[in-house]
């Protein structure tokens, strides 16, 4: 009996030692030398793996930071300046302060909802619908409304508005740019948040000639150039029948907003004018998405526009 126990102990012990040796050799041979800094950098990143930086994920971003030993050309949009500062501290390098940005949907819901010109009945994908036709609004440049951007957002910051055009929640948006990449019509742009979260932008990308664009959508930019003329900062350019406000030059004076004949230019974050009545649309409860939008009408305008 004792002998049997002894044999078992010896055999198992020998096996244990043998495996330990093998494991040690293998571990030595296939050792991956990795800078411990990568782990530390990865630790301070948000870990959402949103891909907004252009890398495959947060760890890939950390590797890139450590390998070039600076933050040049690398920016974690969701983390913002706070994360950049932490990484800079770990790497011991300087950090550029970037303006905080936010995604902006440059399309007016003027033609959606009840004003649809056709009924799209196929796969709920903007990328696919874009290959079929102009979309329900009839605008070949406008929002298709299937929500590819909503599906792409990792931060729950973009939702379909009740008019079929997505609405960005500026508080949640980290400007990772995933929605902008997902949009087949390149409607979504990353713009500076602006002082006090106030910003002005042209909410249209329709390149059709003025008359054609106006026929398509009442709020289309017709490229008339009136905005460019009133702009004191020369921040507005008109190219290909559509005007564009350079957010780096814009001082949010809102002269262009009042000038625009089609109300294509939107201002966000400014206190709502007192005179502006907020007529509650009678059919609002009928809209199926209404329950998701819990913000009262007046506030919602601020968030979205």
């Amino acid at each position: 009996m004792t002998q049997q126990i002894l044999i078992a102990v010896i055999v198992l012990g020998a096996l244990g030692i043998l495996f330990a040796v093998v494991l040690y050799i293998v571990a030595q041979k296939f050792k991956v030398v990795e800078d411990p800094l990568i782990d530390e950098v990865a630790e301070v990143l948000p870990g959402a793996n949103c891909g907004g930086c252009g890398k495959a994920g947060c760890r890939a971003f950390a590797e890139a930071c450590v390998s070039q030993h600076s933050l040049e050309g690398l920016r974690c949009a969701p983390g913002g300046d706070a994360v950049a500062a932490k990484i800079a501290e770990l790497l011991g390098c300087a950090v550029e302060q970037g303006e905080p940005q936010v995604a902006v949907v440059r399309c007016n819901p003027a033609n959606c909802g009840d004003k649809r010109k056709s009924n799209y009945d196929g796969l709920r994908s903007c990328a696919f619908q874009n290959t079929v036709y102009t979309g329900e609004s009839g605008c070949p440049f406008g929002c298709l409304g299937c929500g590819d951007c909503v599906a792409a957002c990792q931060f729950d910051a973009i939702h379909m508005g009740e008019n079929g055009v997505p609405v960005v929640d500026a508080d949640k948006c980290t400007a990772c740019g995933a929605c902008a990449k997902a949009c087949p019509r390149r409607i979504i742009e990353l713009r500076n948040k602006g002082k006090k979260d106030r910003r002005v932008y042209v909410s249209c990308v329709n390149k059709e000639k003025g008359a054609v664009a106006m026929k398509t959508c009442a709020n289309a930019c017709i490229g008339c150039g009136k905005c460019a003329k009133v702009c004191p900062m020369e921040a507005i350019t008109v190219e290909g029948n559509v005007s564009y406000i350079d957010y780096k030059k814009c001082i949010a004076c809102r002269k262009c907003v009042t000038e625009c004949p089609t109300k294509a230019i939107k201002d966000v974050g400014f206190p709502a004018p007192a005179v502006k009545p907020a007529p509650k649309p009678a059919e609002a409860p009928a809209a199926p998405v209404a329950e998701k939008v819990e913000i009262p009408v007046a506030e919602k305008v601020e968030v979205k526009n």
């Binding site: 994908s125 990328a127 696919f128 290959t131």
Partner: peptide, 12 residues
């Protein structure tokens, strides 16, 4: 299921 649509999207 809109299989043909999905395949077209995949092909693109």
């Amino acid at each position: 299921k809109p299989l043909t649509d999905e395949i077209r999207l995949g092909k693109n």
